[in-house]
Design a protein around this nucleic acid. Structure first.
Lengths: 155, 155
DNA sequence: GCAAATTGATTCATACTATGAACTATATAG
DNA sequence: CTATATAGTTCATAGTATGAATCAATTTGC
């Protein structure tokens, strides 16, 4: 009996796709929970937190650059930056060479918050990875790389 | 030289946590893209689509049950159901035994849409998994199971 | 049997994420 | 030195979500 008669090589068992769907959904919800907790812990709306994180290592950014990196429209960035400026985390000034563009820099307070966010995120990642054996860890990362490439190709 | 002097067993290399963060973020964004495309393709706001999917296999549901399963507050469900009812996908009637509760059932149109959504999602999952060898697939699912358990424990 | 408490659903005010069109001001190309 | 293109902002609109207040129906406890 030829197994390919029932399951040609190009098809995947339905229970595998269902299991995959369940796992992906679970991981997605974990990510959402983490994002929500993070926003609460640092008292920042998620979009502002994500925006602040772009300044890591960067001296200054323009709204246009931020819009590109966050994958949102530039009018959205105006609002996000408004929030960060009003909270004293970002400083907004005009570019002397081209007064159309805004030069955005983190303030000292902003840098402090950013460092704390990075630390908390690294700690969270460490705690997750610490629940596996070193062998599981390296194998997981290898498989996630494959999955990410596959999803990016399809989605 | 003892490697444990620099890297005690409980700690994880920083480049591993960074790699993990990058992978998780990439997968999260893929999921978001997929959700957005799905909503667009079926001309339903994501929350309504997710709600409709709860009716798969179920004869009827109450707003309370839906709120529990979607993990949102019940007033939110009122709005979501309003949308599905106005689109003719869900039928709302009073429970004869307890006239406080709403009995919600999918309409014929709703059932058709639900089937199409499930089919599209299964096809997407298949395409993703088809980009791997069968061995990679089973190993991936095993590792995702470990990751999901770890993240659920931490996050 | 009925007042008091509980429960299911809805309405409303509020906050956050995001888009796209319209507009202002500045800079550059012809 | 007008045309046009670019950077940023404002505003209207849509979607996701919460929580307080309210209404109606159902239980509970005398």
């Amino acid at each position: 009996m030829n197994q390919f008669a029932l399951h040609p090589p190009s098809s995947i068992a339905p229970d595998q796709t269902e299991r995959f769907q369940r796992l992906i959904l679970g991981l997605y919800q974990c990510c959402q929970n983490r994002i929500q907790r993070q926003a609460l812990a640092f008292d920042l709306p998620d979009a502002e937190l994500r925006c602040l994180r772009l300044f890591d290592g960067k001296n200054d950014l323009t709204p246009k650059e931020i819009a590109l990196q966050m994958g949102v429209v530039k009018s959205r960035i105006t609002k996000i930056i408004d929030g960060l400026v009003s909270k004293g985390l970002i400083h907004r000034s005009r570019d002397p060479d081209d007064s159309r563009v805004s030069r955005l820099r983190v303030t000292t307070r902003g840098a402090g918050k950013l460092a704390a966010i990075n630390q908390s995120l690294a700690a969270s990642n460490e705690m997750i990875l610490a629940r596996m054996t070193p062998a599981q860890r390296t194998a997981l990362l290898r498989h996630l790389e494959v999955l990410k490439a596959s999803m990016e190709a399809v989605v």
